[in-house]
Write a protein that binds this DNA or RNA. Structure first.
Lengths: 121, 121
DNA sequence: AGATAGAGTTCTCTTATGGAACGAGATAGC
DNA sequence: GCTATCTCGTTCCATAAGAGAACTCTATCT
């Protein structure tokens, strides 16, 4: 990832223009973290540090994913403080509409991915 | 990716043992291709070449993802020919149970990710 | 003044991906 | 019996993305 506009078409962009709506969805959430950020938003988190602590991803990647989510219109970025300029992220309607898919994934994970201990080997 | 067993915990393994079922689901499908392979299975595809042509991903990555899906029990690999030994992939019950999540993503993609032309700029 | 906090950036190192060529088992054509 | 083709991969190299930690900048707390 880490793409910017003026680069030649990557696999990501190909997905974004695919005939299949699932593929187009994957062009937004087809990585390890994006959907978990959205999940955290559903759980009430809204700030950079909250996401970072909750997910344990690198700040670099988090920064990139938040930008992409805002670009895609899944999240909105609003200043919650002006005089140290600080932003909070919240779900847009597009983001809130993720709920059914997220529930589907939650149910699948609950049923088919039992918690296993972190490899006590 | 490309992990094997005797390596120290990566972010992928951390997700696999997360308390959140969505995170555990992401440890399986949290990349660009895996879910699309599953989708292709739902659409009746079952063979290496079919996936490769359909998705346009590299053979290397396809090979890796199929292995992971079989390891995870999402797909089953059955020989459909013994005497050139050939395998076909098909959904297990675990894989078929992905249907609701897939439908959720499809609906979201359909509603919020309109098809746009491949950048006629 | 010094320590804390929030939201990022910048740096280096490692891992994953893309692209294309190569391999191996078997059948089909000539 | 030699070459071509089909399938299902593997190997190799260059590039892109990720991990981890340090650093910036504004501002408030003590």
């Amino acid at each position: 990832m880490e793409r910017d506009s003026q680069t030649k078409a990557s696999k990501w962009d190909e997905l974004a223009t695919d005939w299949c709506p699932v593929a187009r969805a994957m062009s937004v959430i087809g990585d390890r973290w994006t959907l978990l950020i959205v999940r955290d938003c559903f759980l009430g988190k809204s700030r950079f540090e909250e996401f970072q602590k909750s997910l344990g991803l690198t700040r670099h990647v988090l920064s990139d994913r938040l930008k992409r989510l805002v670009d895609q219109g899944v999240l909105e970025r609003n200043a919650y403080s002006t005089r140290p300029l600080r932003y909070a992220y919240s779900l847009s309607e597009k983001g809130r509409d993720f709920a059914p898919a997220l529930v589907g994934l939650k149910d699948w994970g609950k049923k088919h991915m039992p918690i296993r201990k972190p490899a006590a080997a």
